[in-house]
């Protein structure tokens, strides 16, 4: 099933997203695009702060997203992800600090910024009395210069039905329209607020493929989510926001290298927990009915040698999800401020 899906996606990949410059594959082509910019920074926050009266939305965000990067913006609900994103679109204004997109001020140069940005809102409210096609024609007209052929391709890939009135569509089908809308003008920067919510797994795959293609064509992607596995597949780096403050910015690979593995060893007979508890890098040791469960960071050598003294029936290991890594590393740093 998975394989069939992949081949389906690959077959459609080329016509879905026009490559903007020759050789624009992967990270390689991105330099050519930002020639005029001093740095190849697509999005930059400097002390970005938003208060709603006394209540903190976000505070003192400093962040740089490189051009061509797929950047994950992670945090629990209410952490300030949507507040941040709305400041990028000039829907709300910062209390202090600045946000810069493609070298332009998100507030003063907002119209030009929005010309070059594609946006999927967190809760897309689309005109309920319009049909999908009418909505897209309207927004494309307001934007100007949109190739309708591009919309047709996106519609086919996302299997969206443009003939139905929006108020008859499910959440996922409305989300598809919002995604088509964000991608229709092949933006240089994509800002996506929980874009996969409501999408079924099949469509999530298609969406991730579209994101990869956009990135391969040189676009920068800023993707928020509260579900870590969602961004694991597509992102190069992630920032983690909590209660309105950034708590970490990491490459996905670094996060993963910090990983511990969860192991389960099944023995032929009972084993003493003491035999494993003191070993270097081994934690959370639980032994019951001849089954050992523990977490290991670093090399497995000591654990394997200790286990070899007993009869090992089975050994299974689980790669941690980002969620587990996140909780292990940052779970203690919770800031209980407002927001």
């Amino acid at each position: 099933m998975k394989r069939a899906l992949d081949s389906l996606i690959d077959r459609n990949a080329v016509d879905g997203y026009a490559v903007r410059q020759p050789g624009g594959v992967g990270r390689i082509g991105q330099e050519g695009k930002q020639t005029a910019m001093a740095a190849d920074t697509a999005i930059r926050f400097e002390g970005l702060t938003k208060f709603y009266g006394q209540q903190r939305g976000v505070e003192d965000l400093d962040l740089e997203v490189k051009a061509g990067e797929v950047f994950g913006y992670l945090g629990p609900n209410g952490a300030g992800k949507t507040t941040t994103i709305r400041m990028l679109l000039d829907l709300i204004r910062p209390t202090r600090g600045t946000a810069t997109i493609l070298g332009m001020d998100a507030w003063k140069d907002s119209i030009e910024v929005r010309r070059r940005v594609g946006y999927v809102p967190g809760e897309p409210a689309l005109y309920p009395n319009l049909r999908g096609e009418e909505l897209l024609r309207y927004l494309a007209s307001v934007r100007g210069g949109v190739d309708w052929g591009r919309i047709v391709v996106l519609t086919e890939r996302l299997e969206s039905d443009l003939t139905r009135r929006i108020d008859t569509l499910s959440r996922g089908n409305r989300q598809k329209l919002a995604i088509i809308r964000a991608l229709m003008h092949e933006p240089e920067v994509l800002i996506l607020d929980e874009p996969t919510s409501g999408l079924d797994p099949l469509m999530q795959e298609v969406f991730e493929q579209l994101i990869r293609e956009a990135s391969a064509a040189g676009s920068t992607v800023f993707l928020s989510s509260h579900i870590l596995p969602d961004v694991e597949q597509v992102c190069d780096r992630v920032a983690i926001i909590r209660s309105g403050r950034l708590v970490a910015v990491e490459e996905i690979a670094v996060l993963k290298s910090r990983a511990f593995r969860s192991l389960e060893l099944q023995f032929a007979g009972p084993v003493p927990p003491e035999a494993f508890a003191g070993l270097e890098g081994v934690s959370n040791v639980v032994v019951a009915d001849g089954v050992l469960n523990c977490d290991v960071s670093g090399a497995l050598d000591q654990l394997v040698k200790a286990a070899a003294r007993y009869t090992v029936v089975n050994l299974t290991t689980t790669e941690p999800s980002l969620e587990e890594i996140f909780l292990a590393h940052y779970g203690d740093h919770e800031d209980d401020g407002a927001g």
């Binding site: 119209i111 809102p121 409210a125 927004l139 934007r143």
Partner: peptide
């Protein structure tokens, strides 16, 4: 709440 999608266009 449709103002949000309208104002995401360059207008």
């Amino acid at each position: 709440a449709t103002m949000e999608i309208l104002l995401a266009e360059p207008v």
